[in-house]
Structures are given as structure tokens and as C-alpha cells.
Amino acid sequence: MKNSLVEGPGYLNQVKAVQSWERTEVLPVLTGNHPKFEIEKINFYYGALQVLRDINLTIPTGYITSIIGPSGTGKSTFLRLLNRMSDLTPGARVEGSIRLEGKDIFTEINPVDLRYRVGMVFQMPNPFPKSIYDNVAYGPRMHGLRDKKELETLVEGSLREAFLWDEVKDNLHLSALSLSGGQQQRLCIARSLAVAPEVLLLDEPCSALDPIATFKIEQLLAELAGRYTLVIVTHNMQQAARISHYTGVFMLVKDQAGELVEFGPTNEVFTNPKSPTTEAFLTGRIG
């Protein structure tokens, strides 16, 4: 039959369109799915106090992974471990292993290289009291870049990547402190990007910002995904839901040590969490 449902050209086009549904997944299509961080059996203590227990987690390359959970469950502690920010905290002790691209960050990568590869953005925008230009140029200069032309290109590129260039291009030599909070935060992101990291850790990057500035940062993070691996700690569950591809939930289960009670694609965590604890937290029944 010429005009059959299966053979008709119109129908075939429709079926093709239908097949394209599968590509509307929130997860961007990336080549392979190899881990950026492999975290195994991490236990972390401040003196006698255990604050993280048996954290096992694989953070995939190129995606946004968010870490959510009530206050005091060790989310920020966990994030800071990923570039060894806790090394200098008195009494801090870590057990277990964290591998970046297969190499142990405590034994096989020196901390300077680690922080070069794994940048960090904090809750309060913290630009240096220098010009906008010098803030972005700071990292590359520290790494020995002196060529003026190259520096200029790098600064412009980083500011463009952080969606800030158009707003500051005529005032690059003004103090960074003259910028608004949202602009300062994007400047801090530009500053991190200037040293070409593989990973950006973000600890509550929007909690000091108004909703529009927050949306701008969220949009920026969405653009950076794919090229960078992003790990974001946020108190704002809806923010985690909106922007991340994977979500991990930290909770206190038996005592004061945070545990990872759930990890999975954000869509699944927010529509059908596996753990009853996660469900109770997301629906506001505990926390």
C-alpha cells in the first residue's frame, strides 16, 4: 500500500521528528562520560568531630553537579576538599581518596597545580582591591605571563566568557569594587577562568545576589558547562533544580557527620528521589 502509515513519506518525517524527542534531554550530549573526580570512602574530621562519612561519588566531566542539603551537613567542607582548601585548617583530617583524572589529589598532584586546575568561587564576591583588568590578569601574571598583547587577549576572552565584557569594556581600569555585587561575582568567575581551569567549584555563588543577578550567573554557568566541569553547593534547591545536570544530597543520618544519601540526574532526583530522606528534604518535611 502506497499510502500506508509506515511507508508514507509524511509519516516518516513525523517519525523522524519524534525520534528527535530523545535529544531534548536536559543533559548535554558529551563525548564519553568519563569521571572528572572519583571520590572514594571520604571521611573527614575536625579534631574528634566527624563531619563527613563514607562519601562515595563520581563527578562527571563537563556537567554541572550540584550539592544540596540542610545546613551543617558538610556540603561546603566537601567542596573545599576538592581543591584541598582544608589543608591548613587546624585539626582537619581526611581519610579516603579523591582522584582528579585518575590521580590522587593528596599524593599525586601538588596543591599549586591542583588549584590551578580546580578554581573556586565563593559566596561573597571577593575581587581584589585592584582594577577590573588587574583582577583578571592576576592569575596569568602569577603563572608568568608577561606579554601585554597576550594578557589583553586573555582578559578580554575571560570577561567575554563570564558575560561581563560588554558591561565593563570601557572601564577596565576602574576599581573592581565599583562594580555591583552580581558584576563582582561574574568578575570573580572571569578571574578563575583566566587560568584555564578544568573545574570550577562554586560555594553558594548567588546567595548574596538579587534574582536578576542570580539568573545571569545561572545562565553563565549553563554556558560554561560542557567546556568546564562545575560543582556548585547551594542552599537554594530550586537553583540546583534549574541549572544542574546531576544532584547530590547531603544529610545527617545517624549523628553529626554528613552523608551522601542520594546522587543522580537532577531530573530524577527532583521528580522521583530514591531515598525517603531526600524526598522529605525536598518537600520541606525535614531540614
Binding site: 513525523q14 521528528a17 519524534v18 524527542w21 531534548t24 536536559v26 558575560f163 536578576i212 539568573f215 545571569k216 545561572e218 545562565q219 549553563a222 534549574r242
Partner: peptide
């Protein structure tokens, strides 16, 4: 900068899928 570009794109896709 268009805010929430990804959400907008997904919403458009959802509407296209409904038409399909």
C-alpha cells in the same frame, strides 16, 4: 543576555513535541 535561555528552549521543544 537572555535569562533562562535553556528553560525557554526546552519549553519551545515541549510545544513542538505536542504538535508532532
Amino acid at each position: 543576555m537572555m535569562l533562562r535561555e535553556h528553560f525557554s528552549a526546552e519549553l519551545v521543544q515541549l510545544q513542538v513535541n505536542l504538535t508532532t
